[in-house]
Simulated assay, not measured.
Amino acid sequence: MRLVIARCSVDYDGRLSAHLPLATRLLMVKADGSVLVHSDGGSYKPLNWMSPPCAMAEREPEEHERGEGAEIVWSVQHSKGEDRLRVLIHEVLHDSSHELGIDPGLVKDGVEAHLQRLLAEHITALGEGYTLIRREFMTAIGPVDILARDGRGSTVAIEIKRRGEIDGVEQLTRYVELMNRDPHLAPVTGVFAAQQIKPQARTLAEDRGIRCVVLDYDELRGIDGSEHRLF
């Protein structure tokens, strides 16, 4: 991973156009080719980015750009479209590269892992006729927590969280979109299951046709002696 702190401006052209005026920012170039532009705020979200597959080249600025103070230009082109990211660097304050090695991936906490196991064992809690295909169904962009079939025989991708937020809905959306390209799985719908689901996450999920389910951990464990059920 390459980390550059620089005074720069950024222009994005493609499905939309966006401009970031001159300011000091963190530029991140990952081993997968992705390029991200961060500010010292806004939590974890980049101000702009280019997802792989893409190619980056460092070029000399054009004459008018050099006249405005640019010293070098990063030109990032998406390999499967017309999306382009152009970063005009005026001053480099830091430039370093680091080898991070192979990442083991996200390890869910005990509650999420246990919820996944319990729900897989009692998949009919989601509805009559539901059957389990498998847990941790691997896709090209990561594992789906549970893959199942509903009572009509359609494929259902289930994402499980302890606390359901917008990020989890976005994650499930990517899984469903990717899996719907596979004729052996399509049509695929999504279920977003969590102990708590924030209102914003529920609104986004329902807008995208994703069903929301609130899980009761104690009920799934059968602590109260009742039937395993969901609310």
Rank of each mutant, 00 (worst) to 15 (best):
E65V: 02
H114K: 14
G41Y: 08
R162I: 13
W49C: 01
P61E: 01
A193Q: 03
L22D: 12
H38F: 15
R211A: 14
V29E: 11
A31T: 09
V156W: 05
D182E: 07
D224Q: 14
L119P: 03
C212Q: 10
T131R: 15
G101N: 05
V73H: 01
A125S: 13
I158H: 11
E112N: 02
L3T: 09
C212M: 11
W74Y: 11
T189Q: 13
M138L: 12
L126A: 03
Q116S: 06
L88H: 03
A148R: 14
T24P: 00
G67N: 14
L3G: 01
G69P: 06
I133M: 09
G153H: 09
K30A: 04
G168C: 07
D40P: 00
E170V: 11
K108S: 07
P183Q: 07
A194G: 02
C54N: 06
G129S: 09
S75D: 05
R2T: 07
V214I: 15
R2H: 10
T189S: 15
A6S: 11
I166V: 15
V10Q: 04
L27F: 06
G42M: 03
L132C: 08
R229C: 13
S226D: 12
G190I: 13
S96I: 13
L106K: 12
T131Y: 05
G209D: 13
L100Q: 11
V76S: 00
R211F: 06
E91D: 14
R84Q: 15
V92D: 01
C8P: 01
M1V: 10
L215A: 07
S75P: 00
K161P: 07
R208F: 12
V191C: 08
S9P: 00
K45A: 14
M1E: 05
R152V: 05
D145A: 14
P187T: 11
E71T: 13
F231W: 05
C54M: 04
R202L: 04
R181K: 13
C8S: 12
L88C: 08
T203R: 08
Q195S: 07
V29Q: 09
G129L: 12
D83V: 10
V76M: 01
E159Y: 10
T203Q: 08
M1I: 06
S79G: 01
L85P: 06
E136G: 04
S17G: 04
I158T: 06
A113E: 15
Y175L: 04
C212R: 07
D207Q: 15
E112P: 00
E177Q: 13
I141K: 05
V37D: 11
E82H: 05
L106I: 12
A186T: 14
L132G: 05
K80Q: 14
L88P: 00
D32L: 04
G105F: 03
A31H: 04
G101H: 03
A201S: 01
G105M: 07
Y12W: 09
P143Y: 08
G129A: 10
P61G: 02
